[in-house]
Design a protein around this nucleic acid. Structure first.
Lengths: 204, 204
DNA sequence: ACCTGAACACCGTTCAAGT
DNA sequence: ACCTGAACACCGTTCAAGT
């Protein structure tokens, strides 16, 4: 993680990652060019190659930072919840959706194929899995306190993550129009998903 | 839709779209280059500009074809189902997940920001909405036959689409490991999602 | 009307040379 | 050890010229 020593900049590696995250947030991967990142960091266009294999390697580091920030947001949401599983899941959903809406281009890129092969960018893969683990632990505690059913906890976590990730992504792609046109649309939709998952959509 | 007339190729526009879809399937948008598409279609690198504004415009046409194929797959799944909402939703989920697993790079690109602004590529946006409409109509018929609850049908459709889209995407990003490591993993997960949504994950 | 070939600006990557 | 500048191949886009 820490490559302290550097020549002109203290920690160019970190600086490039932050510049990359900033550039990514401005318009996605099509406008993401290595020379621009270098310029943003005040360094020649060849300098990044001291710290990254190639462009993909820099992108991997940038979206790893994204996963890390997402994880921290979700962790904060759990910490601020009452010790009540429903409330925790509610708040995780909200935090996930809000993070996505605030960082749409990063989130798109975080789920655009770089994690397919966990041998390719092992550090990225490990960081991305922390999000899954966090959710699974909330699910497990919900089972222990008798609120959730006792299906395989990993399976429940998969289903839960699927729902909130799908919602978040479809919102930023403008595919949730009936709902996002409301003033409090994103909050409403996040809550809706959790309720539907908890209680089911079957007629009772 | 039909621009019949062409010079050397009958319908270059269509040919470029199919060549583009093929190239996209080989490795995503980072390897998607206009000159290669032109070469694949047997035409000079400047020829595409007779039919498309720029690279993004071609990509928009390519992923519109993707949405169209996805819609047809889902429609076929509905047609082959019994007139039973649960069975229909089950089959739609399976078809959605299978399509995504067969065409991972296309699906990633279909949800990578080109539909944000529906004024930018109106035809693309319209085609992409057909998927939503299809799902909504199945939901409505499920409400009419008394199987689903009577919440706003658009809201239910949003939640359902979120879940299956999230599942499909997370599978191809390798974030559903606990489940995709099983032999029949994708089918199992698709079924799981529908069951969870229908019945809820609450302890009963 | 539709396509080609040359031309331009710009990017990813490499490498010898600088401090 | 870390960074720079020149160099190379290649891409997106434009445009005058061909049929």
């Amino acid at each position: 993680m820490n490559k302290k020593s550097s020549y002109h900049h203290g920690d160019l590696r970190e600086k490039l990652i932050l510049a990359g995250l900033e550039l990514l947030s401005e318009g996605g991967v099509m406008g993401f060019d290595l020379r621009k990142v270098a310029r943003k960091a005040g360094v020649s266009h060849a300098a990044p190659y001291r710290h990254f294999e190639d462009k993909s390697d820099l992108i991997a580091a940038v979206i790893e930072e994204g996963f890390s920030q997402l994880h921290d947001s979700l962790q904060r949401a759990v910490d601020m919840s009452e010790s009540n599983t429903i409330d925790q899941l509610q708040n995780i959903s909200l935090a996930y959706v809000k993070f996505t809406v605030r960082n749409p281009w990063s989130v798109r890129e975080m789920f655009s194929g770089l994690t397919i092969d966990h041998n390719m960018y092992p550090s990225l893969y490990a960081t991305s899995k922390k999000v899954f683990s966090l959710i699974e632990s909330v699910i497990v505690s919900g089972q222990e306190s008798g609120i959730l059913n006792l299906d395989d906890s990993k399976e429940l976590a998969c289903v839960f993550l699927s729902t909130i990730h799908g919602t978040a992504l479809l919102i930023i792609e403008n595919h949730m129009q009936p709902i996002t046109s409301r003033p409090d649309g994103t909050e409403h939709l996040a809550r809706l998903c959790v309720n539907a998952l908890i209680n089911g959509i079957k007629k009772t």
